[in-house]
Simulated assay, not measured.
Amino acid sequence: MFGKISLGSVGLVVGGILSVVGFAAYGFGNATLNLAGMFYGIPILLGGLALKAAEIKPIAYSQEPSPDLQALRDSQATATQQQIRKDVTRYRYGQDCHLDDALERLGLSPTDEERPLLHHIREESREGRYALVLEFKSPLFSLEDWQTRREKIERFFGPDVTAAIAQPTEDEIELALIRAE
């Protein structure tokens, strides 16, 4: 639940309100309210600014999962598939992008400029098995680059996961993490 709320925005709002109240209390000569507003408001405001600067927005679904897919997810999804889905659909802090550590370990992130960027996810049923599809913008890594890493991807996101890699458009790669039989 809290992953769907931007902590940076909350810090900015609460810190801003407390700071304004503190400044107003200073103007009206209310020392107690002034101290509370200043000593709590400004640090919370600064914390909110810091969180906002380090914030990564949640990734959206390209297609919302149907109730049948949600039931399939609940019955078949591996712990890794569940964790990836939860991690990329919530606010994250202190990272360059979603899945940056995974892409680096897979050899798909030599520099920030070359790193593929996750832009959407979706859930599918492939031959009755649950699949989490990660949609990347990948202009500098070709389909062949991704396919040479397929076994490494399966080991990294496994166990019980097979990877299917497709290229729907020139600069886009879809990585499907499919529940193994």
Rank of each mutant, 00 (worst) to 15 (best):
residue 75 S to K: 14
residue 50 A to M: 06
residue 153 I to E: 05
residue 1 M to C: 15
residue 171 D to V: 09
residue 162 T to E: 03
residue 130 Y to I: 05
residue 58 P to S: 11
residue 93 Y to R: 09
residue 16 G to T: 11
residue 7 L to R: 09
residue 106 L to M: 00
residue 10 V to R: 08
residue 105 R to S: 13
residue 152 K to R: 11
residue 156 F to M: 12
residue 70 Q to I: 15
residue 177 L to S: 01
residue 169 T to K: 15
residue 9 S to F: 09
residue 47 G to W: 03
residue 104 E to R: 13
residue 62 S to P: 02
residue 31 A to W: 09
residue 159 P to H: 14
residue 60 A to C: 02
residue 152 K to L: 08
residue 119 H to F: 08
residue 71 A to T: 09
residue 64 E to N: 09
residue 116 P to E: 14
residue 62 S to K: 14
residue 33 L to Y: 08
residue 54 A to P: 06
residue 22 G to P: 05
residue 57 K to S: 13
residue 130 Y to W: 06
residue 77 A to C: 06
residue 64 E to F: 09
residue 91 Y to R: 01
residue 11 G to C: 02
residue 41 G to R: 07
residue 146 W to L: 10
residue 143 L to R: 14
residue 166 A to F: 00
residue 13 V to N: 03
residue 85 R to L: 15
residue 174 E to H: 15
residue 53 A to V: 10
residue 114 E to S: 08
residue 135 E to G: 02
residue 124 E to K: 15
residue 48 G to T: 13
residue 21 V to D: 02
residue 10 V to H: 10
residue 152 K to A: 10
residue 103 L to P: 11
residue 73 R to H: 01
residue 45 L to K: 10
residue 16 G to E: 13
residue 13 V to Q: 02
residue 29 G to H: 07
residue 107 G to D: 08
residue 88 V to S: 12
residue 20 V to T: 09
residue 82 Q to H: 11
residue 135 E to C: 07
residue 143 L to D: 09
residue 134 L to N: 04
residue 98 H to W: 09
residue 94 G to Y: 06
residue 90 R to Q: 07
residue 26 Y to W: 12
residue 169 T to H: 12
residue 114 E to A: 15
residue 103 L to V: 13
residue 26 Y to E: 12
residue 136 F to Q: 10
residue 180 A to S: 15
residue 149 R to Y: 04
residue 28 F to D: 02
residue 166 A to M: 05
residue 2 F to G: 12
residue 83 Q to P: 00
residue 51 L to I: 00
residue 179 R to I: 02
residue 107 G to W: 06
residue 66 S to E: 07
residue 20 V to M: 08
residue 73 R to A: 01
residue 88 V to I: 15
residue 132 L to E: 14
residue 96 D to Y: 06
residue 8 G to Q: 08
residue 125 S to G: 13
residue 116 P to S: 09
residue 168 P to W: 12
residue 151 E to N: 14
residue 117 L to S: 00
residue 35 L to E: 11
residue 49 L to S: 06
residue 84 I to P: 03
residue 120 H to W: 12
residue 92 R to H: 04
residue 21 V to A: 11
residue 159 P to M: 11
residue 96 D to V: 12
residue 131 A to Q: 04
residue 170 E to L: 05
residue 107 G to Y: 07
residue 68 D to T: 10
residue 90 R to W: 02
residue 72 L to G: 05
residue 137 K to L: 15
residue 38 M to F: 13
residue 95 Q to Y: 13
residue 22 G to C: 01
residue 103 L to F: 07
residue 114 E to L: 15
residue 37 G to E: 13
residue 133 V to F: 03
residue 109 S to G: 00
residue 7 L to V: 04
residue 134 L to D: 05
residue 114 E to H: 08
residue 58 P to V: 07
residue 132 L to R: 13
residue 20 V to C: 00
residue 55 E to I: 03
residue 43 P to D: 06
residue 125 S to D: 09
residue 108 L to S: 04
residue 178 I to N: 01
residue 71 A to E: 07
residue 121 I to T: 03
residue 169 T to Y: 14
residue 165 I to H: 13
residue 130 Y to D: 03
residue 92 R to L: 11
residue 18 L to P: 01
residue 31 A to F: 05
residue 60 A to H: 10
residue 159 P to W: 15
